[in-house]
């Protein structure tokens, strides 16, 4: 996948911002459109209103957490159970944010510098991160932040439009299409798990999380995600550390991590 860059030799922040905006309209845009059409359709089918579906795209800004929220509120789960589930499912943003922001240099500077860094943090999610990690080394320091802002704004803009599209489509289209739309996201993550996830600990986490989550769900639906995540993830972590003790090489950050 290639991403739109400012013209060679340019150092203008405005040109970088514009290039970032255009980059979001390419291939990353297609992935977001499919994903958020799927989420919009799911939100409608699970009884979430369109304004709340859009607000979740802006605030949670990552389909897995949004799917968890839509599903769990439809199941009648506890407020706290839902907030904790969404929060933990998004814990992967921490290891994603660290290497990306390392490209932006020192935090030193006034309030404006801090505000722009923390504001930029809100954009971190799979598609944004994958593209940004690819582009950052190619840009001079002064163009990095503007490019990221442009890219993030077009990613969220496209996703908001697709959320509306999926929501409306689910109310108008026949059941067969509706089924296909709500199937898009879980299938997408199944495929990512099957092909792109690297590292023994992460693969073990997926297997253990799925097995424990399914086993606990009929007994304890509110907390089955938490059980799968915390118990399954911890088992996988222990397995990974045991295996890691034998090979000393640190793992590369995985570019396809969801």
């Amino acid at each position: 996948m290639t991403y739109h860059l400012p013209p060679a030799g340019s150092t203008s922040p405005l040109e970088a911002w514009r290039a970032g905006l255009i980059a979001g309209l390419g291939a990353p845009g297609f992935a977001l459109i499919a994903s958020f059409i799927g989420f919009g359709a799911l939100a409608r089918e699970l009884g979430l209103s369109l304004p709340l579906a859009l607000l979740s795209t802006m605030t949670i800004w990552a389909v897995p957490g949004q799917m968890a929220l839509a599903e769990m509120q439809a199941l009648g789960a506890d407020f706290l159970a839902i907030v904790i589930a969404v929060t933990l499912i998004n814990a992967r943003f921490l290891p994603m944010t660290l290497p990306l922001f390392a490209y932006l240099g020192s935090h030193a500077g006034g309030l404006k510098r801090k505000a722009s860094l923390y504001g930029l943090g809100q954009f971190v999610a799979l598609t944004f991160w994958t593209g940004s990690m690819r582009v950052m080394p190619l840009l001079p320091m002064g163009q990095r932040m503007p490019w990221l802002y442009g890219f993030g704004m077009s990613c969220i803009g496209i996703s908001l439009m697709a959320t509306v599209g999926g929501y409306v489509a689910a109310s108008q289209l026949p059941i067969a299409i509706k089924l296909a739309l709500v199937f898009l996201n879980p299938l997408f993550f199944l495929l990512v798990f099957s092909a792109d996830v690297k590292g023994a600990d992460n693969i073990a986490a997926i297997i253990a999380g799925a097995a424990i989550g399914l086993a606990v769900h009929p007994l304890w639906p509110d907390w089955s995600l938490m059980a799968g995540g915390v118990v399954g993830g911890s088992i996988a972590f222990v397995i990974g550390e045991r295996m890691g003790a034998r090979r000393s090489k640190p793992a590369e950050p995985d570019s396809q991590e969801p």
Partner: peptide, 14 residues
């Protein structure tokens, strides 16, 4: 990272 992956897998499986 392990907890986040396991939780996402539990959601997708469900």
């Amino acid at each position: 990272t392990c907890v986040s992956y396991a939780m996402l897998a539990a959601l997708v499986a469900r």
